Computed example of a mutant assay.
Amino acid sequence: MMNNETNKQVETFEKNFFDWLLSKPSSTEILAVEESQKAIEGENMEAKIRMYEEWEELDPLDSEEIDFPDYNESPPMTLGELPTVYNRFESLLQKRLKAEIEAKPPLFPWEEAGYNTYYPDVETQDWVSQISLWASQMKNIRWRNLSIPLTDSVFAQILQSCQEIVQSDLLPGSRLVKAVDNLFPGQSQSLNNLAGFVLAGPSRNPEVLSDPVITYNSATPNQQMLLSLMAAEEILSSLTLTCHLNQSVVKRQWETAVGWINIEAEYSIPEDRSSASLRIKGQLPVGATLKLQGREAQTTAQRSDAGSLWLELFAPQPDQKYELTIKLLNWDEPLKFAVCLQDL
């Protein structure tokens, strides 16, 4: 009998409870709930303000560890406030990581600790302007009948260095090292040793190239130095026109982003003249300016469209180097050749 009575009480309670849930609250109940909610929200807002003031006093960049505020001193937070804390913590963590990355940038896989990762903005601009015009020539740089795998930026740096030293009187080995030493600071001795292999010619097979090199970035440091030296030798050779008196015409070709440049140089004494002359012919893909200059003389020619340009310098000084500059219209970076005259 007691079990039946208890069951009836439970059933009655459940029925009354569900009827109460389904019924509409009275205006008095609604007002009481609103007043209670406002009071809770006010307390929560004061807690949030205190919590933010404590967080703002923290600067994660001033210490190695982030000290969290003591939550025992402020009212407990409700579950709904956790996302706010997470967002604040994430913001502080991002600032800390950004500061650490800027102070010590991560290395690429091919870089080593202590690798010089500083690239001046001025040099970068120079590389970009040169790459856009002269990068097409890179695939024509060969050694031992194999193309030399370089990156655009490495090619641009070597080309710039070669143009600066092509007029110099340095010994061949010193010229090669000078052309690439800015790529490998502090490696002068290794560069000097490897330059010997390059100057010995294709008959010598350097041990550092015993393993095939597919890309420049995947090569070992010694392989990168050797590839750069070989590229420098080929570039210097392409930028140098050695003309012997009354001998065959010297020719050079350079591929650019706008087409091929063909250069011919001839040093001779014409039959109807008593003095020698140096004649330069340029076949150009676009309008350009040609300038030939030495210590005491210079001559210039230009045209506004594609075609041929001629330069002639009378009575040039024997055994002297002349600078031939080619500047294509609408391009800032010129290409500079050394024209070397030899009477014998």
Rank of each mutant, 00 (worst) to 15 (best):
P212E: 15
L229N: 03
N222L: 14
G259T: 00
L239S: 02
E271P: 05
N205W: 07
A219S: 07
Q189C: 06
T242M: 04
D211S: 11
G201W: 08
E266P: 01
A231L: 14
P206M: 10
I235D: 00
S203I: 15
V249G: 01
I269H: 01
P206V: 10
L199R: 10
I269R: 07
R252E: 05
T256D: 04
N205P: 02
L241C: 10
E233R: 15
S237N: 12
M225L: 06
L241D: 02
L226A: 02
P212I: 15
A231V: 11
P270S: 09
S190R: 08
P212W: 15
N192L: 10
L227D: 08
E234G: 03
L227P: 03
S277T: 08
S248A: 13
S190I: 07
G259P: 01
Y216E: 07
N222W: 07
A257K: 12
L241Y: 02
A219W: 06
I269E: 04
V213D: 05
W254E: 07
S237A: 14
E266Q: 12
G196L: 13
A195N: 03
Q253K: 14
N222Q: 15
K251R: 10
L239Q: 00
S277L: 12
Q247M: 14
V198T: 04
V213C: 00
A195Y: 04
F197P: 08
Y267A: 00
S190K: 13
V213Y: 01
P270I: 02
L199K: 12
S237H: 13
S218G: 06
W254D: 03
T220A: 10
E271N: 14
S210V: 06
R204E: 12
S190L: 08
N217W: 09
Q187H: 09
Q223G: 01
Y216H: 06
L227A: 06
S228T: 02
Q247F: 02
P202F: 13
H244R: 09
Q247S: 09
S210P: 03
N193K: 07
N193P: 03
E233T: 02
M225V: 05
E271M: 11
T256G: 09
H244G: 04
Y267E: 01
L241E: 00
L239F: 01
Q187G: 12
Q187Y: 06
E233C: 03
G196M: 13
G196E: 12
L236Y: 04
N262P: 01
V258G: 01
D211M: 11
I214K: 12
A231S: 14
L236M: 13
V250H: 06
I214L: 15
S203G: 11
A195K: 08
Y267K: 00
E264W: 09
S188C: 03
I269T: 03
M230S: 05
L236K: 05
S218V: 07
C243K: 01
T240P: 00
A276P: 05
T256M: 05
A276L: 07
D272G: 15
S274L: 10
L245M: 10
T220Q: 09
A265W: 07
I214G: 05
Q189F: 11
L245R: 08
S277N: 10
A265H: 04
G259L: 09
N246W: 05
V208N: 03
P221Y: 04
P270G: 06
A265P: 00
G201D: 05
L209H: 04
T215R: 11
I269D: 00
R204Y: 15
G196A: 11
